[in-house]
Amino acid sequence: MQSVFCTRLTMSGVYRAPALVFALIFGAVFMSTKAQEPTSSPAPTPCPSRSNTSCAECLQNVTCLWCTPTKQCMDYPVRNILPPRSVCPLNDARWGLCWVNFQILIITMSVLGGVIIIGIVVCCCCCCKCERIGNKREDAKVERQTRARKSRQKAKRTEMHLRHDEIRQKYGMAKDNPYARMNDQ
């Protein structure tokens, strides 16, 4: 099964598996993002003024962070990648969407990143292995052809020597001593 897969990949001389993986990843990312229409909105209200309202109302402004247990809307702490536990625990922090908390987001992104990296590594290893298998097959084929050529040359050479010996015997020029000169006979 693997050799069939490898020959299908290398038939045109170009490996298509990494390109296919890249296309799938690019397509998934492209399809998951939505085009945002530019709208002219009034100046956004500051995040702390939206406290004690709802998560959806707080997160209308992308710079706001909603903390579920305290029902506080606050400015996202941009100095940190993730909000510190003192501001709001990761499990209770919401940003962008009310139904996605940071803890699940981190776990999901880590798993997806790991799967993508493992997939790329497996594709690269498979392509390298297919190339090595193909090279071994080509090397074995060339070696068989070389051995066959040498054996044909050897057979022709012995046949030629036999004919020459027959001709020498026919005309009385056969040499008993291969090191004797032809004039000495």
Score class of each variant (00 low, 15 high):
S3M: 13
C6E: 11
T7R: 11
R8S: 14
R8N: 12
M11A: 13
G13K: 03
Y15P: 00
A17L: 14
A19Y: 12
V21L: 15
I25G: 01
I25V: 14
G27S: 13
T33A: 06
Q36W: 07
T39L: 15
S40K: 13
T45H: 01
P46S: 15
S49L: 12
R50C: 06
S51L: 09
N52K: 10
E57K: 08
Q60E: 08
N61Y: 02
C67N: 09
P69D: 06
Q72D: 12
Q72G: 04
I81E: 03
S86F: 02
P89F: 02
P89Q: 02
L90F: 07
N91S: 04
R94Q: 05
R94A: 03
L97K: 09
V100W: 08
N101T: 07
F102S: 01
I104E: 04
T108E: 02
I118K: 04
C124W: 11
C124I: 14
C124G: 05
C126M: 09
C127G: 14
C128A: 14
E131F: 07
E131H: 13
R132D: 06
N135R: 15
N135A: 11
N135L: 10
V142W: 11
E143F: 06
R144T: 01
R147G: 00
R152T: 03
T158S: 06
E159F: 02
Y171S: 05
G172I: 04
A174D: 02
D176R: 15
N177L: 10
A180E: 12
D184L: 02
